[in-house]
Amino acid sequence: MTADEILAKLQASFPGLVKSEAPLKDYPTWTVPAGSVRAVFERLHSKFSFNYLDMVTATDWSGPGNPKGYPQSPAVTPAAAGAPSATAKDVFEVVYIVSALSTGMRLCLRCELPRKEAAVPSLYGIFMASDWQEREVYDMYGIKFEGHPNLKRILTQDDQQGHPLRKDYEHVADKFD
């Protein structure tokens, strides 16, 4: 079964699920609304044997980032900040790559979220791998994964302020700086 056939079957139940305009590499890339993320993955896992979650990551599309608060950060002037790029949007995009080990097929699913109070359903319980992957995305971007039973920082220290990969991150000096 090709990716297009799977997409056609899924679209009967999830009308928001569409093919993405910009595919990631040569993977079949779909855009999925935040509300049906968990249901789509549940269906992919149970009906189409997509049993391996390669990765979960995210992108902050809100224009050029201005590093602030680092020991050697340059002073940010309006000229240096630069104009927002053409692709800048006020959204986070959560990116999932999932594959079927039996057929070798690999899909990329994208899900756009508003940057304010960004939240998406967790895949905890469908894929074991989603546990730490989602904690990492939460650590770096502050995106809440609803339904994750242990959503706390995984890479940075416990008293880290803010989420470092957000474009609006401002570093607060801690006891080690």
């Binding site: 680092y70 050697q72 890479l155 220290q157 570093h171 080690f176």
Partner: peptide
């Protein structure tokens, strides 16, 4: 990694 959010800037700080 001097300009990093995650790295101690020299172990002599601790």
């Amino acid at each position: 990694f001097y300009d990093s959010y995650a790295v101690v800037k020299g172990v002599d700080k601790i």
